[in-house]
Every structure is written in C-alpha cells, then in structure tokens.
Design a binder for these strands. Structure first.
Lengths: 209, 209
DNA sequence: CACAATCTTGACTCCTCAGTCAAGTGTCTC
DNA sequence: GAGACACTTGACTGAGGAGTCAAGATTGTG
C-alpha cells in the first residue's frame, strides 16, 4: 500500500490476492490462515505482511475489486441500449454472467454478507447496484412499461432473485446457465402470473386502488 | 442431551440458548465466546459444557429450533385454505411475520448461510420450504392461476425475494412491516409488469394452451 | 562497485478461546 | 440422614492463529 512496488512486487501481491480469494472461497475465511497462504506460496510469513497490513485488509480489497469489476461489466452491457426495460434485462444477464464466471467471488460475497465486519461493504455495493437500476426502473415506469411501484423496492427484489437463484440453481443444483438466466428474467418481469397478461409494453391504465 | 434434566436444569439450558442466540445475532458467532456467555450468566464455564458438548452443537440447535418454529407457523397459516394461490400468499405473509418478530434469528440464518459449517442446514431448510411451496404452485399451475414454469424455480425465486426484501427493507431501512409484505407479494405475483392483470385470487379461467 | 531500496526469512511473542477436570454444592429420594 | 444424581466451580491445558522483527538476500541505480 504505502511503498512503491517493483514488477516483482506487483506480481507477488497479485499472487497473494488470487490465491487467498480462492482459498477463502473454498475453505472459508476463518478456516484459511495466513500461515496456510504463505505455506502454499512457499514463502516466509513476512512476505504477506510486506504487502498487506492484515488479513482483513486483504479481504476488503478482494471484495472491493470484485464489486468494481462486476459493476463495470454491468455498465458495459447496457451501454448504448435505449429501452430502459431492455437495459434492466441486459443488466441482469450481465450480472448472472459475471457471477457464473467468478463463482468463488460470489461465494465471498455470500460469506461477507453474513459477517459483521464485511456486511457493510456488501450493503454498500448492493445499494450502488440498486441505485443504478433505479434510474432505468423509473424511466420504465414513466414509459408505462412496468407497473407503478417504488423502484428501490423493485431493484432489491430483483437483486434477491438473482442472488438466490444463482446460488441455488447454478451452484447447488448445477443447472445450465442459460436456463437460469431465462427463468430469472421471466420471474422478475412476470412474477408468478401473467402469461395471461397483455403483451409487454401496454400503457398502464387504472391501478386498483 | 444425554442426561435427564431437572426443572432447574431445563431452565438453565433455555437460559443459555436464549442468551447465546441473541449474542450470536448481535455480536456475531465468532465474536461471541463461551466465556462471554457464561460470564454474562455469572456461572462457571463448566455449566455450559454440562448442557452442550460444543459451541457448534448449541448453534445447530438454535438454528434447527428456529427452522421448525418458522415452518410450524407457515403450516398453521395456510391450514384450511383451499385456493392454492392464496395458500402461497398466506405462506409468504406468515414467513414475513415470523421474520419480523424474530429478527435475531433471521440474522442467524443469514450468518449461517454464509458459513461452511452451517450452510448445509440452511440449504436443507430452504429445500423443505420450497418443497412445501411446490405443492401449492403445482396446483396453481394446474388450475391456470399462474404461468407454467418449473415450480422449484418459482419457489426459490420467492424465497430470494422474501429474504432480500426482509433484510433490506425491514432491517436496514426500517420500513413498516405491512408495506414490505404487500410489496413482496406484489412482486412475487406480478414481477415488474402486470398491474394490468386480473385481480389477485380470481378463479383460473382459460389457460393459454 | 557501493549503497539504497525492495523483498524475504522464519522463529518468536502474544493472545484468544474451546474444551477439561477434580473437587465442591444443591436437591431429590428412600 | 445418607446416598445418588444433578448441577456448579474456575483454574488449567493445549491448539492455533495473527502479527512482529532483526537479520539476510536480491534488485535497481549512480
């Protein structure tokens, strides 16, 4: 952090980050000791503390990097799309895609969400994601593409579906990616009902109360 | 577990369970030591190990009891309701109700889901819940009340929405219970679209195919 | 080469915490 | 009240892990 790194130093640092992320994901954060990590790298313990001031700092960095990476992908995915509802769909697809490709990082998010030390980071990341989504949701509501509802709530509901379906279907049941993507989008758009509904973008007339 | 408990013993045991559950929820499982617990109860350490063989066993018991309690409430809530879609709705309401009333246990579920030692229990519990829901979902599909889709997926999607909205809206944003309940149900039924749909529990008329 | 900065070593310290145990107290039962 | 069983005590053990540090190796630079 504080000192300048040579090329060799950069490499070592990345080596530590990558290995740790994987071990944290497979064995768990608590079950992975610094000693484990440096042993696997066949280096002395001081090496770790040359690059990171603590295990916690390392983990925070892993999380933050992952969050930024995911967000970057989401934004790249929707770039240039005009239809707000379509942007949402593309965002969902991009997210699932990223999660599928970085399963170990998904595991880390999952762990972090349940740990007091890190849950605030996850919350912050989710908030950012929902704020991003909120913009498109508002537009879509204004355009009458989707029902009137608090866009923040909608955003979080979508997030909940993505997280849970990803975990259960992809990680635990080993379902194929595409199917999960389609099911997720179908549920987010239509919920349980509404195969019977009028086709997609009808103007919203009279809400019930 | 193994020995018979006197009334005094039962009381002590419950005392330990209750206090631990609360401390695990507020300070975190790892941050709560057995020493903490017995100190707060002003008893010797041996007391703990008279009633429980390990910290892990205690936590498992807390989880299991909570899961059973939640399920009991869900089943009581839908008992006697004929309409399958309505049963689902009642089940969702009951779940949210229970989660709101036992926030500390919800926190424990959340932690447990992200920890390798306990996540299998959570998965199992979720599976049971989804299997319960699946029965009603299948019926509802057969009756043409909801769209055709894999009921397991639908069940998990609902679970994801419940969990996430509960956490974010109730625990983090402090939204009133009723609003969250309504929003959750609305999202599960209609997704983003379909304010235009026929009102909630109409008898299933003509399915599309 | 010199000498400075980066990087590495690994034994060591410090601490926390789960779990044990031998000895003691309280309570129930006959 | 005597013996049995339930409960309690709290110092102790042992394991394990985070983080330190003084000394040494390697690399970059003038």
């Amino acid at each position: 952090m504080r000192q300048r790194l040579t090329k060799r130093g950069e490499q070592r640092r990345r080596q530590i980050v990558d290995l740790s992320a994987r071990r944290f994901a497979t064995q768990g954060y608590h079950a992975t000791s610094i000693t484990d990590i440096v042993n696997e790298l066949k280096v002395g313990k001081g090496v770790f503390y040359w690059y990171f001031s603590s295990k916690e700092e390392l983990f925070r960095e892993i999380l933050l990097t992952a969050q930024h990476d995911l967000r970057r992908l989401q934004q790249a995915a929707i770039e240039g799309e005009d239809d707000p509802l379509r942007r949402i769909e593309l965002g969902i697809r991009a997210s699932l895609d990223w999660l599928g490709k970085h399963r170990h990082l998904f595991m880390l998010f999952h762990f972090a969400a349940g740990d007091e030390r890190f849950s605030s980071m996850i919350r912050k990341g989710e908030q950012v994601a929902v704020e991003d989504a909120t913009r498109h949701l508002k537009e879509a509501i204004a355009a009458g593409q989707i029902r009137e509802a608090d866009p923040t709530v909608l955003g979080h509901a979508i997030l909940g579906v993505i997280n849970h379906l990803t975990r259960v279907l992809i990680f635990e049941l080993g379902e194929p990616m595409d199917r999960v993507v389609d099911e997720t989008i179908a549920f987010c758009l239509f919920g349980l009902k509404a195969s019977t509904c009028p086709s997609p973008a009808s103007k919203g007339p009279d809400p019930s109360d």
